[in-house]
Design a protein around this nucleic acid. Structure first.
Lengths: 340, 340
DNA sequence: CTGAAAGCGCTAACAT
DNA sequence: ATGTTAGCGCTTTCAG
């Protein structure tokens, strides 16, 4: 059975195509009687407007959600928030990822641009601000995980510096001094992105506690290859002197580190304390029990989506939301081990 | 700067729009000279065809990947395979999930249908076969995780009955007799889907080893609510007599079960052996070390994508691929505990 | 409040 | 081998 078009609905309801279109878009200037008749015809014919055709002239009512990958356990939390906000609207999400660890999110962005989506919500830590600004001039955009300003798009973040401070201070309070940071490769991360802010927070806090000379930064990355985090983990664990605690920019990296530690017979938290970021659900598994900075992914997602919809409805000025993080202390952090 | 259209390219290259369109589609009847000129113009103008407009007449070169959720760690493996096959083609993927645990994949399917995608690759265990067949008549479709036949779409699967047999026989060889199955709620799963097959394999193998009276089935589900698996886990762990081993339909459910066991002070594998299915990457984490049936998600994904492209290029007959599973024995299974 | 008509950017069938 | 033209299904002026 062929799909019904707007013409079919118009004929069935005995009105013009324009009238049907108005019902579709909830537009002004329509009698109740007409609306009812059209709606009846739409149901009867099981009509759905064809987005491709709508896109040619007007909106598609489709939003592009662009994420780096599907593996980071934090993203589902964001997506949950996105969807909870979307439910009360007539917008539909379409999701895209980087096609590989070496690629960027640009591919997904282009595909969605070609489909004429109405707005973007993205997590794209490695893309250049200039490029994003260009995208944002053609499509309303909100970013999570970047602290850019005057960029033409909204941003939603947690306070990454504070988050880092909470993590490092927790470790210091446990007696740790050799605290390393496991971050992103700066070459593949934009200056304003979350991990860079966490790095700053780490440096500041270390310095504030007289530990400037203990600062030790390892630049791993999700962006080079799938297995790169394992390599960096081993490098950390084999460095001399080995840090007694590691603050990781995201939970999944912390899991990898803990896995490599286990392989080397290094016990967590007895020999090594580990803190993650994001407090994803997996961190709560008793076997992992990862102390982690919680940045309320669900709320990041729902706030971001609210901003996006505002922007689509017409707001022009940039808006920036910063949420407070908190530390969720679990079993992966403990007192500094006695000197061997 | 406004986006260039096919008309702009045609003018810049001094040819007709039809010629440009032919270059785009690699169509027959074009001189080399012309093709070169058009390609030069496209690059110069930074031209990208607008998918929405293409869709109105022809193909969109976009494929819909429909998945139940983003949390099951098995799906990224499938996606990797999908993308590796896609790389050598001119198709782009767009991804959709169920909007909530209570909803179905139909929502995502409809959105993509509205966008006029050229083909579907889906994992949709709960949808009715009749509905899927209807979808497949309008768009080439291949399914992962269902063993439907004569349905108008291709299927790619591992041999779920064999996988279940491998798991149960492993447990039996370790001396277990009280082996439970943690499956999907049959009310929310189609009869031919993978989990149902695993259930059959479990039953058969138990019976074949004279353990028919020990068959014990717990029907959890990803489909009712987010936290339902925890509830079912507790029910399993508190049942009398408590099984000494549990075979779980998917890894993530096994993780939940292990987490609940830990909370109750039940040790794995000393007090309880656990086997998962999918052998996702997380299963390899030493802290989890989950014995699991490996079904090579990457290959499922790439095979499925190959079938889909064949279908788009014209194949009409249904094709069905079944891959052999193997058991990856790790630390979550051990000898049956001595009778208390 | 309603309908007629033009056109969005592309493809496909048809001429040349 | 190349160009012309008529739509695809919808939205959007603009008259009535």
């Amino acid at each position: 059975m062929k799909r019904a078009t707007i013409k079919d609905v118009a004929e069935a309801a005995g009105v013009s195509r324009a009238a049907v279109s108005k019902v579709l878009r909830n537009a002004y200037g329509l009698s109740d009687d007409m609306r009812t008749r059209v709606e009846a015809a739409m149901t009867a014919l099981n009509y759905r407007p064809q987005t491709a055709a709508r896109g040619l002239r007007g909106r598609t009512y489709t939003l592009g959600i662009v994420l780096p990958d599907m593996r980071n356990p934090f993203f589902p939390d964001i997506l949950d928030g996105v969807i909870s906000t979307l439910r009360s609207t007539s917008y539909e999400p379409l999701i895209g990822f980087r096609p590989s660890a070496e690629a960027t999110e640009q591919h997904a962005i282009d595909t969605m641009l070609d489909h004429k989506i109405d707005g973007f919500l993205m997590v794209a830590p490695r893309l250049e601000e200039a490029y994003l600004t260009a995208v944002a001039t053609s499509v309303p955009t909100v970013m999570i995980g970047r602290h850019d300003r005057d960029c033409g798009y909204d941003t939603v973040n947690n306070d990454d510096r504070t988050g880092a401070r909470l993590a490092v201070e927790h470790l210091i309070s446990l007696g740790h001094r050799d605290i390393a940071y496991f971050g992103l490769d700066p070459a593949s991360a934009a200056p304003n992105n979350s991990t860079t802010r966490r790095l700053v927070g780490y440096r500041e806090t270390m310095a504030a506690h007289g530990l400037a000379d203990r600062i030790s930064i390892f630049e791993g990355t999700h962006f080079r290859s799938d297995r790169y985090d394992e390599e960096v983990s081993r490098r950390i664990l084999q460095s001399q002197p080995r840090p007694t605690a590691v603050f990781c920019w995201t939970d999944s990296v912390a899991f990898t580190l803990m896995a490599e530690a286990a392989k080397l017979g290094i016990r967590v938290p007895d020999d090594l304390s580990v803190i993650g970021y994001d407090n994803s659900r997996l961190a709560a598994l008793p076997q992992l029990s990862l102390t982690s900075v919680d940045q309320a992914g669900h709320q990041l997602g729902s706030d971001a989506m609210k901003l996006l919809i505002e922007r689509i409805e017409g707001r022009q000025t940039d808006q920036h939301i910063i949420l407070p993080p908190h530390l969720d202390i679990k079993g992966s952090t403990g007192p500094v081990p006695a000197r061997g």
